[in-house]
């Protein structure tokens, strides 16, 4: 209708032009990036997003404790959304490999195993140092400085800095740090492989933070190296840090086997 009324003109099969300007031919890649971003923009305003974060959190926090089935209709009822929206959330959780469909087409959140921890951490060792190198030039210096100061404060007051502050620092180190990555596929892979970060977070809810000190020291060094543009050294240190944390994550996963399974939301059923 807008074209018919002369407000916009077709641009050689690449959308429409507003106003008097000339069409700028775009490569297939550029076009894809634009459309991909546009899709994300549309998604962000969709109703599934309103509940996505809390459902993801509710499911993730159960993974160390067993295998669970998620009921689509009950999920919708619980969060007061339609079944279509509930299904959309579940498809997106499957997309990030938090859940899968079994042979009976049930939505299943499979238990986190030592193998999952080892495999995902191997991927993190490969992906995250490169992501750090890619994103480092774009990182805000004042944010890096403030992160370094927070880490220093946590080290100085360890262990009274508390679990919540260590959680928040980890979130900045492994979440906020990469948020500006242009390569969204890489970012997606990193997010999918950070599933085992739930283990230290859950562990710290129940047990002392004694063993988190060396990681904080490493985080401080990494942030300072980025600030000093010593990116290769930061990459090596990050890789080493992820590698060294693996035995601790595995040991903490074994400790979680002692805990009784947590209470689940009404839309989640323990399978075993």
């Amino acid at each position: 209708m807008l074209a018919e009324s002369g407000l916009i003109r077709p641009a050689d099969g690449q959308g429409y032009i507003v106003g008097e300007g000339k069409a700028k031919p775009l490569s297939a890649r550029e076009l894809h990036d634009i459309l991909d971003d546009a899709a994300h923009e549309i998604d962000r305003s969709a109703s599934w997003e309103r509940i996505y974060a809390s459902v993801s959190e509710e499911v993730t926090s159960l993974l160390p404790f067993g295998t669970y089935r998620i009921q689509e209709a009950e999920l919708g009822d619980h969060h007061d959304v339609s079944r279509t929206v509930a299904r959309e959330v579940l498809w997106r959780l499957m997309d990030v490999r938090l859940i899968e469909k079994d042979r009976k087409s049930h939505w299943i959140a499979g238990q986190m195993t030592a193998r999952v921890v080892r495999d995902t951490m191997e991927m993190r060792r490969v992906l995250e140092p490169q992501a750090l190198a890619n994103v480092a030039p774009t990182l805000d210096r004042s944010w890096l400085e403030s992160l370094a100061r927070r880490i220093d404060t946590a080290i100085a007051s360890f262990p009274t800095c508390g679990a919540a502050e260590i959680d928040a620092i980890e979130k900045d180190m492994f979440g906020t740090m990469y948020a500006g990555l242009r390569n969204t596929r890489m970012l997606g892979s990193i997010r999918r492989n950070q599933i085992a970060l739930i283990v230290p977070r859950l562990f710290r809810q129940h047990f002392p933070v004694r063993d988190d000190f060396p990681a904080l020291v490493s985080f401080g060094q990494i942030v300072r190296l980025i600030g000093a543009d010593a990116i290769e050294a930061a990459m090596i240190l990050l890789r080493t840090q992820i590698e060294r944390s693996e035995p601790l994550v595995l040991a903490r996963l074994r400790v979680l086997s002692i805990l009784p399974p947590p209470t689940t939301q009404p839309y989640i059923i323990a399978v075993h």
Binding site: P64, F65, G66, T67, Q111, M112, T113, A114, R115, L250, L253, R254, L256, S257, H272
Partner: peptide, 15 residues
Amino acid sequence: TVMPEHNYLARRWRE
């Protein structure tokens, strides 16, 4: 032993 996959084993054992 509490083997590396003990967390998985323990849940299967309970089942």
